[in-house]
């Protein structure tokens, strides 16, 4: 199977998953008690039954569940995610304004994770069971164990309060401004730490495993320099396991950004989601959840493709 056919096949497999993702998103919000209209009615006894029905119609909450889903998914496919009840902004508008903030944060987190984890993992594997390895293992274990919200608070405590390098409450520059990098440091580290630690562990294990394989001895027997053996032969094989992990880590970074944005008061989609949940903004909740699901499915797809590029054996399954 050529790489192109492999990609095409994976893309087709994605379609039913995306459909399922939309069903789950919808079901989550609609199969449980407490839609915003009943809440509105509960809070405001003056609303008449006729008005309630009208409100339901307005927000697409009348009819059977199936009809509601059809209306919703139809609107979503045409780019209409409905309005925010509280502010009557369009949900799509909120998404578009918040998205860059979250992307900036997530990207910073990913880059931080890779830059820290890959060299450390390689170092640890090469120096297995020596001091540096032990130290990096303890750090990695801490990294996967530390709750990100607490890490964020601690970074603020140290970086902003004790060292005074950052000003917690101060307004930041626009998201595209280069100075933004400075403001991204603390939340970026917070969001990337768990991923960095996971990659470090996987990198170490898979690298150590690869180093024991016979092709490494064979490469040495060919007289290749150690550097080349590690960077060319071993690293590429070890990266295969990291790529398998990458989609999972993307999910962890997405989930992490929800918490971290709240800690750092970062105006992204995650903080928006928390606020939407507190405010029972179901259109917003559904839109962000659906978006998250889509994003992760696509990340999975990308990881699969990257996997096939790195490992020629996969394409021939």
């Amino acid at each position: 199977m050529s790489l192109r056919r492999f990609i095409l096949k994976r893309l087709l497999l994605t379609v039913p998953i995306l459909f399922g993702v939309s069903v789950i998103t919808f079901a989550l919000v609609h199969l449980t008690p407490g839609d915003p209209i009943s809440q509105m009615v509960a809070e405001n006894p003056n609303v008449s039954q006729a008005e309630e029905a009208q409100l339901r119609a307005q927000y697409g909450l009348d009819g059977t569940l199936w009809e509601q889903y059809a209306t919703w998914i139809g609107n979503v496919l045409s780019g209409d995610f409905g309005d925010v009840y509280g502010s009557s902004q369009s949900v799509a508008g909120v998404l578009i304004s918040r998205l860059p903030e979250t992307i900036a944060l997530g990207l910073f987190g990913w880059v931080f994770a890779l830059v820290i984890a890959i060299p450390t993992g390689v170092y640890a594997a090469i120096n297995k069971d020596k001091f540096g390895d032990t130290a990096s293992r303890i750090i990695a274990l801490s990294g996967i164990s530390i709750p990100n919200f607490w890490l964020g608070l601690m970074l603020i405590l140290v970086g902003a309060l004790w060292l005074g390098w950052w000003d917690v409450g101060a307004p930041r520059t626009a998201v595209y401004h280069p100075e933004m990098l400075w403001f991204l440091i603390l939340p970026g580290i917070t969001v990337g730490t768990a991923a960095a630690a996971s990659i470090m562990r996987v990198m170490r294990t898979s690298m150590a495993e690869e180093l024991n394989k016979e092709y490494v001895v064979a490469a040495r027997a060919k007289g290749l320099p150690e550097r080349k053996i590690i960077l060319k032969h071993v690293l590429r094989n070890s990266m295969i396991s990291v790529v398998t992990l990458a989609a999972m880590l993307t999910a962890s970074i997405v989930a992490g950004s929800v918490v971290v944005e709240t800690v750092f008061n970062w105006p992204g989609l995650g903080r928006e989601l928390v606020q939407a949940i507190h405010g029972h903004e179901i259109n917003l909740i559904m839109a962000i959840t659906l978006f998250t699901g889509f994003f992760i499915v696509l990340a999975n797809l990308l990881a699969d493709i990257l996997y096939a590029v790195l490992d020629p054996r996969i394409r021939y399954d």
Binding site: E214, V217, A218, A219, R220, A221, K222, G223
Partner: peptide, 23 residues
């Protein structure tokens, strides 16, 4: 290193594992 693979070369027991699968 300049001798390995050049003046002394080795043939391994299991060719499948001695070859790097990704190249």
């Amino acid at each position: 290193r300049s001798i390995r693979g050049n003046e002394i070369a080795m043939v391994f027991q299991d060719a499948q594992t001695a070859l790097n699968p990704v190249y």
